[in-house]
Write a protein that binds this DNA or RNA. Structure first.
Lengths: 265, 265
DNA sequence: CTTGCTCCGTTCGCTAGCGAACATAAAGCT
DNA sequence: AGCTTTATGTTCGCTAGCGAACGGAGCAAG
C-alpha cells in the first residue's frame, strides 16, 4: 500500500539550480553518457538548450498519466520507474542513472508518461524542453512515427507484465491471457493447450488446469483438449486483473479515433 | 523447463506463400493496423516491398540474440514475446497481433532480438526487409539514434523485470537491486531504507529485512539505518540472479567501445 | 536527557503456488 | 478395433512470501 507510506518524502516541486550554476557547470552535462556519446558538434548545438536541474531524493519526476514537458538527461543519482496496482502495491521495472534519460514518451508517443518516475538516490540532470526534443524527430515519416508509438505500447505491456507477475493471482492472469488472445482473434474460441499457456504465464501446467477448472465451473468458459470457448465475456473481464483493461485502453488509444493527434504537430 | 517440452512444435523454417499469393492479396496488408493507419501515399510507396508470410503455430520468429532481418507486420494470429531464465523457466511479457509488429530492434538498436518471439496462434504477416525499414529512419540525428537505443535498453530492463518477478527469490532480487544501484553511484555505499527497497521490489518490508539480515550474516553487506555498505561485491554478484548480469551486459554494450556500430551505417 | 520519530528486527499463523507422481480420457494412427 | 500419443484432472507434502502485530534501537531536536 504505497499511498499510506511516506518513505518517499514526495516533493511537490523540484529544486532548481540558480542560473549561475547553469552557466558555471556546462561541462558536467557530459557526465550523462548519452550526451557524452554525441559527436562534438551535436553536443555543442544542444548545449544552449540544456537546463541544469537538481534531483532531490523522493522527487516524483512524473506520475503515470502526467504530461511530460522535459527530457531529463541524468548526470548523477538514480531514478526508478515503477507502476502501481489498483490496490496500491508498487513494482519498479527499471532503473535509470547517468546512462539514460527520463521522458521517452516525448518522442515515442504523445508525451503522456506511462509510469511513475521517482528519484531514489539524489543527483542531477540536464533537461531539454519538449519542443526542442521533438524537433530532433521532425523528419520522420508516418510509418516511423507509428512504429515508435507501437514501441511505447510494447513498453506498456512489459511494465504491466512485471507488475502483474508480482501482485496478481494465477487465476486473474489466466483471465487476462484469454481475453488478450480473444481480442486478437475475432472469435470467441481459441486453440491453445494448458501446457502452452502455463509456459507463457511462467507457471505450472497443473496451476492452469486448476484455474481453468474454476472458470469452467463458474460457467465463464468451456475447455476441451486445447480449445477454449468463452461463454461469458463480461464476467471473465470481471475476474481478470486490471492489467487487461489498462493495456487494452492504451491499445485503443494507439489505434483509435484520436490517431496521431500529438506526434504530427 | 521449457526445453524439454515440445508443446511449441517449433518449426525450423517458416512457410512462405507462393509469389502468386503475394500478388493476389496485396489489399489484405491493410489488415495490419499500422499499415492501415498510414496515409495512402505512404502505404502505396511501401506496398512493393511487402512480402506475404504465413505464421504457422509454433514458429519461433526469432530467439533472444538472433539477428533480425525483417520487420513483420502482423495481419492475423498472435505472437508472444517471452524470455527464459537460466533454468529454462519462461515468461511472456507481451502479445502482438494485427495491431503490431515484430522486429523493433531493427530501428531501435542493432537488429539483435532482445527476446524470443513465438507464434501462439497461427496467422499471417507482411514483412519488410531490414534495409528498407532502416531507410525510413535514415534522417535521424545522433541524439535520436542514442535515444532509440536507450529505449531498447529500457525494454530489456522491463522484460527482465517481468521474468525476475515471476521466477526469482526475494533474496536474489535484493542482491540485484543493490548491485544495480551501486553501478550508478560510484561508491560502495547506498542510502536507502528497507522500506523504500521493499516498495520498489513490490514486497513486504519484513521480507527485505530478513533477506538483508542473511546477506549481513554472510558478510556481504553491512546495513545500518538506511545505509548499506557492500563488503564483498563478488560474492554479492554470485548471490544475485542472472538478471543483473544480463542487463549490465546490455548496458555496457550500449555505452561501450563498440558504440553505434550498426545504426550508423 | 528525554521525547518523539524513523527504521529495523522478530514472531506466528496462513495461503498460493511449487514439485512430483499418478490417473484418466480424448484424438489419431494403422 | 486396438494402440500410442497427447491433454487434462487429481493428489500430497512443501516452501516462500504474506499479513498483522509488537519490540527495540538509533537519531534528532529541544
Amino acid at each position: 500500500m504505497l499511498e499510506r507510506r511516506d518513505s518517499f518524502r514526495p516533493y511537490s516541486e523540484p529544486h532548481f539550480a540558480h542560473r549561475e550554476q547553469t552557466l558555471r557547470a556546462p561541462n558536467t552535462a557530459g557526465q550523462n553518457r548519452i550526451l557524452a556519446a554525441l559527436p562534438r558538434q551535436d553536443f555543442e548545438r544542444l548545449l544552449p538548450y540544456l537546463e541544469f536541474v537538481v534531483l532531490p531524493l523522493g522527487w516524483r519526476i512524473h506520475g503515470a498519466g502526467d504530461p511530460e514537458k522535459y527530457l531529463y538527461l541524468i548526470t548523477a543519482g538514480i531514478v526508478a520507474r515503477f507502476y502501481l496496482t489498483e490496490e496500491g502495491a508498487s513494482t519498479a521495472f527499471a532503473l535509470t542513472g547517468s546512462e539514460g534519460v527520463i521522458g521517452l514518451s516525448l518522442f515515442l508517443d504523445n508525451g503522456i508518461a506511462p509510469s511513475h518516475a521517482l528519484v531514489v538516490s539524489p543527483g542531477y540532470a540536464y533537461r531539454l524542453r519538449a519542443p526542442v526534443l521533438k524537433n530532433e524527430f521532425k523528419h520522420l515519416g508516418s510509418l516511423s512515427h507509428l512504429l515508435l508509438r507501437y514501441t511505447q505500447m510494447l513498453l506498456n505491456q512489459a511494465q504491466q507484465s512485471a507488475v502483474c507477475n508480482r501482485h496478481h493471482s494465477l487465476e486473474q492472469q489466466l483471465c487476462c491471457w484469454i481475453l488478450s488472445c480473444l481480442d486478437r482473434l475475432s472469435s470467441n474460441k481459441l486453440s491453445m493447450t494448458q501446457e502452452l499457456i502455463a509456459n507463457m504465464l511462467g507457471v505450472r501446467r497443473e496451476g492452469v488446469t486448476e484455474a481453468a477448472g474454476k472458470l469452467q465451473k463458474a460457467g465463464l468458459v468451456h475447455y476441451s483438449r486445447g480449445h477454449i470457448t468463452v461463454l461469458d465475456r463480461t464476467r471473465l473481464e470481471a475476474h481478470a486483473c486490471e492489467c487487461y483493461a489498462i493495456v487494452k485502453r492504451a491499445h485503443t488509444r494507439l489505434l483509435g479515433l484520436g490517431l496521431l493527434p500529438n506526434i504530427y504537430p
